[in-house]
Design a protein around this nucleic acid. Structure first.
Lengths: 210, 210
DNA sequence: GACTGCTTTCAACGCCCGATGAACAACAGG
DNA sequence: CCTGTTGTTCATCGGGCGTTGAAAGCAGTC
């Protein structure tokens, strides 16, 4: 209530360009990654992301053209090269192939980079681009290529079976957090899931009276 | 401001009680079932449900107290008694137990009643009540009871593993519609998935080095 | 036939969303 | 210094959401 002094506005950040050095764009990307993981595409609001990044919501439009563009840059990008990953997975003994796959994805999924997958899974039921990205990744980029290299029948069916188990695992472990699977260590999960994948990859799966 | 003439309203549908016989409540329940299946909890709007039912959106509040109550009545109710289902599943040969489970759920899922599961799966990533209902159903009501009757170790882990594969299957087959798994006939899917469940139910799943 | 109560529609409220455009401040180049 | 450019905030827009209260009309009762 001190009337004579007009200088009572240091806390509120003033308008105009910031004093350089602070990177609004990457702050938004980081905040978007977190919020999309926690809330999914629909649940995450542009305002919440901007608040967490400490900037105005209009910056999302300025830097990314809108919410959709931010999602594409923050979530819809692969954290690694799928072709190279597939090659690395196929490099070892085929008896351990499924184990390597499960371990690889659990490891990725547990890192910060793997948060993208959680964000995708959380968004897939409401956001078409997320669902399409998941299908394209798991089914076409990973499992069809692996199974194609194995030279075995019913490659498409096998790919969607593998995708169903791996997506179900990600869903239960990272999104719905069913216990004890959500807290089990990697070795336990690998021991449990890998034989399933190994069977989907290489063993007969036809119905009895095909 | 009110310069325009108050023209006589064209009688689209008049106000007031309808000529009896038409059941607004069940029309809303049916429409809600459809829309929740197609859109999930967040995507489905009260207005869209009411429009499909051919009534006013306010009826949702009048008959169900709100969107949440309508969801509870239309989706969050089991179309059968789980205890009885578990008993029926356990009645036969244990070697075929997993096959019976997969076949039972595929059959239910393919009927109209099974649309509730699709609605739950579509809603689980954004709506807590849906996620909780799925966990309660698959993990506690079905698999923990079955595995408990089998008298085997790690029953909780086994239950969440079974849930992961069955939820992944439902997701891929009914929501994301990955081909060819989405269009495969029941026998093919049973032949592919049942051995996985059988292993989760009864065979050793511990990691190599304890 | 009037009264009473239930059902239904209508109009509107308050809220939050994503997006827009203008005002403004810091920088870069001369 | 002055000038143009670019990054930033602010105020606001248009729209959709779930919900609400009141008016309107049918149905049953006396």
């Amino acid at each position: 209530m001190t009337s004579t002094e007009p200088q009572a506005t240091p806390p509120a950040r003033r308008r105009g360009r910031r004093p350089a050095g602070e990177d609004t764009r990457s702050a938004l990307l980081a905040a978007a990654g977190e919020v999309f993981v926690e809330q999914g595409y629909d649940g995450a609001t542009v305002r919440a992301i901007a608040t967490r990044a400490g900037v105005d919501a209009a910056m999302v439009n300025h830097w990314f053209g809108g919410k959709e563009g931010l999602f594409a840059k923050a979530v819809l990008q692969l954290p690694f090269d799928p072709q190279q990953t597939v090659a690395a997975l196929l490099a070892g003994d085929r008896a351990d192939l499924a184990e390597r796959i499960v371990r690889t994805f659990l490891t990725i999924w547990d890192t910060n980079e793997g948060g993208r997958f959680t964000a995708l899974v959380r968004s897939m039921t409401s956001h078409d681009a997320a669902a399409q990205a998941l299908r394209n990744f798991f089914q076409h980029m990973i499992f069809e290529r692996i199974i194609g290299q194995l030279g075995i029948d019913q490659s498409d069916l096998r790919a969607s079976l593998c995708a169903s188990q791996l997506l179900g695992l990600g869903l239960v472990r990272y999104v719905l957090r069913f216990e004890p699977l959500a807290s089990s260590d990697v070795d336990t999960v690998v021991a449990a899931i890998a034989p399933t994948l190994q069977r989907y990859l290489t063993e007969p799966i036809a119905p009895a009276a095909g």
